[in-house]
Structure formats: structure tokens, C-alpha cells
């Protein structure tokens, strides 16, 4: 069975913003969208801007897909799959994430 690792408190996340977590030596961008108790996780590395910045982008939706816009050059990355909408070849990894009570967890 897969194991889950505690990352932070849900209440540490301001609505509609992201944070970056260090998880298994990787940088993971975690986002909280809307009013629901729901979070998303994709890689923090922007392969187009070549910098660890995606957690600092603005979240929203484009044609129904929840996305974050890179703060560098504004390409959109899907929060559920990591797909880059403008340049699919530059898509990033998505991570399994959940909220248990007030704790945000990433799959180990």
C-alpha cells in the first residue's frame, strides 16, 4: 500500500495561492483553489523559464481546466495533470496529494 507523508497544515495555505514543498528531494508546487477543502500538486520547476517558480503563479481556470500561469512567461499548466496547455511537450509531473483533517499529505 502506498504511504502518505505529512507536508503542512491546510490552514497554512491561503485560498487560491500556492506554496512549494520539498518532497523526496523534489520541489513540489501545492495549490489550494476555490473554497473547497481540495489541493493540487505539480512540479515546481517551469521547464520553459528553467526556474523553480510555478508555486508562485496565479491560479484560475481556462476553458474549464484548473491551471496555474507561470509567473515568468505565463504559460498555463493544468493543476490535475501537469499538462502545459500551450506547449504539451513541456508538461510537468503531477503528484498524488490529499487533505486528511487539517493536514496536507503527498504520496511517498
Amino acid at each position: 500500500m502506498s504511504e502518505w507523508k505529512d507536508i503542512c497544515k491546510f490552514s497554512d495555505l491561503a485560498a487560491n495561492t500556492g506554496v512549494c514543498a520539498l518532497h523526496n528531494q523534489e520541489q513540489v508546487a501545492i495549490f489550494r483553489v476555490g473554497k473547497e477543502q481540495k489541493v493540487y500538486a505539480i512540479s515546481n520547476y517551469d521547464p520553459i523559464g528553467k526556474a523553480n517558480v510555478l508555486s508562485r503563479g496565479i491560479v484560475g481556470d481556462i476553458k474549464g481546466k484548473l491551471v496555474v500561469a507561470s509567473p515568468l512567461y505565463k504559460q498555463h499548466f493544468c493543476l490535475e495533470t501537469g499538462e502545459c496547455l500551450e506547449e504539451p511537450e513541456n508538461s510537468v509531473k503531477a503528484y498524488a496529494i490529499r487533505v486528511e483533517g487539517d493536514v496536507v499529505q503527498l504520496q511517498a
Binding site: A14, A15, N16, T17, G49, A51, N52, V53, R56, G57, I58, V59, P71, L72
Partner: peptide, 19 residues
């Protein structure tokens, strides 16, 4: 208001190309 701001406004500084 925080979720509305570009990264520059959130951190009150200007992001350069390496973040």
C-alpha cells in the same frame, strides 16, 4: 486580495528570470 496578485505584488519585489 492576495490570490489576485502577480508574484511581484505578493512578494513586493520583482521576479527575475531565475526566480
Amino acid at each position: 486580495h492576495i490570490g489576485l496578485q502577480d508574484t511581484n505584488d505578493i512578494f513586493l519585489a520583482n521576479m527575475q528570470r531565475d526566480g
